[in-house]
Amino acid sequence: MQTQGAQRRALLRQQSPQHLEYCSSLILRAIRERHSGVSPNALVLGAGACTEIPLTELVRNSDEVVLADLDLASMRLGAGELPTSALRRRVLLVQCDISGDVSVNLKRMLERQPWDLLVPRGAQAVFDAAAECLEQCLVPDPPVLEGLGTGKFGLVVSSLVLSQLFSYPLLDILDRVQLVAPGLLGEQERHSRYQQAASAFRLRVINAHLHLLRRLVEKDGTVVLLSDFRGFVFDVYGTDHDAEHRRTMPLVPRALPDLVRENFTVLEEKHWEWLTDLPVKGRPGRGYEVVGYLLQ
């Protein structure tokens, strides 16, 4: 099943139209209110296939639009949906890890651990080692993304990628634990050092991303930050607002609003829900609570 692009967008229009509407409205407002003196170039970080990005309008109102993501195939899919070749020529695709290779750095540290010696010593030793990897993992702040420069863009969009920048590396740790000691998976919740290291790691990655946005946007330019901040599952469609039928899972630290305000002036803030899957045949539906910021 295609999870991005036109087919995904059509599905979202049916089950979560507010998500597309609010993502687009923030970006379109940023386009309308872009200062006349700032660069007419725009950048989308975590672009993927631009499922939530009003790409045609963005390109028509920019000299050049740069899409940046690790997934080159999806970016090609998104750019290929533009209606004319003239518009497609104004899009530049940059394949990069916008975290600055945090996952690569963490993987290197995990591979250096003597797991064969740690596992026989039990959960404490395993999760202390995992915590040490997180504590010492290099998080470039801000990341240096080749070809994007500094202050070149009048509009920068961070498109629903923030939580992925830290959640994927944390999942890599749990994958490693499952590989070397599957019986310990789930024990991480009981180890305070690991939990503290994971919390600090999340904050470091978030700060680095906010600093990246600040560095990439031109002075007096505009940033649109779209991020999920809480996930939820629900078992009865149509009652997704009823606490009795949903279970929530925090994704982003509560400090995010304060961190955003430390780095930017908030021009607009919106909150909404994004349903990604409806419940079917005993499988619960899934969704996210999302925040969107228009920043300067």
Rank of each mutant, 00 (worst) to 15 (best):
A79W: 01
L55H: 12
A68D: 01
A68V: 02
G100K: 06
C23G: 08
R29E: 14
S24C: 11
V104R: 12
Q95P: 01
S36A: 12
A47S: 14
V91C: 06
P54T: 08
L82R: 11
C23P: 00
E57V: 09
P40M: 08
A73M: 07
V94S: 08
L106Q: 07
E33A: 14
R60T: 06
A6E: 14
L72I: 01
N105F: 04
P54A: 03
A42V: 11
A73D: 15
P114W: 05
L117T: 05
R32Q: 14
I98R: 01
V104Q: 07
E21C: 09
H19N: 12
R60Q: 08
V66D: 03
C50K: 03
R90M: 05
N105E: 05
L110A: 10
L26V: 08
R9C: 07
L93V: 13
I31N: 05
R90E: 06
A6F: 11
A86M: 07
R8W: 10
Q15A: 00
Q113H: 00
V119C: 10
N41P: 03
R29K: 15
G78L: 02
M75S: 02
L77S: 06
L11P: 01
Y22T: 15
H35K: 15
L82V: 13
Q18F: 05
A6Q: 14
R89V: 13
D101N: 13
L110H: 12
S103V: 12
L110C: 11
P83T: 00
Q4D: 06
Q113K: 10
C96R: 01
L110G: 12
L117C: 05
R89H: 11
V102L: 04
V38S: 09
G37T: 11
Y22C: 07
Q7W: 08
R9Q: 13
Q113F: 02
E33K: 15
V102K: 07
E52P: 04
S85K: 09
A73P: 04
L55N: 10
L67Y: 04
D101F: 04
A79E: 09
A68H: 01
G37M: 08
N61M: 09
V94I: 06
P54E: 04
T56V: 15
I98N: 02
L72C: 07
P83G: 03
L110F: 11
N41F: 06
V91Q: 05
L77R: 10
D69W: 02
L43E: 02
A42I: 10
S99V: 00
R88F: 00
V44H: 02
Q113C: 07
V119K: 15
R88N: 03
E33Y: 12
R89L: 13
N61Q: 14
R60F: 00
W115I: 05
T3Y: 11
P83H: 04
S25G: 08
S74W: 03
I98V: 12
K107E: 10
L93N: 03
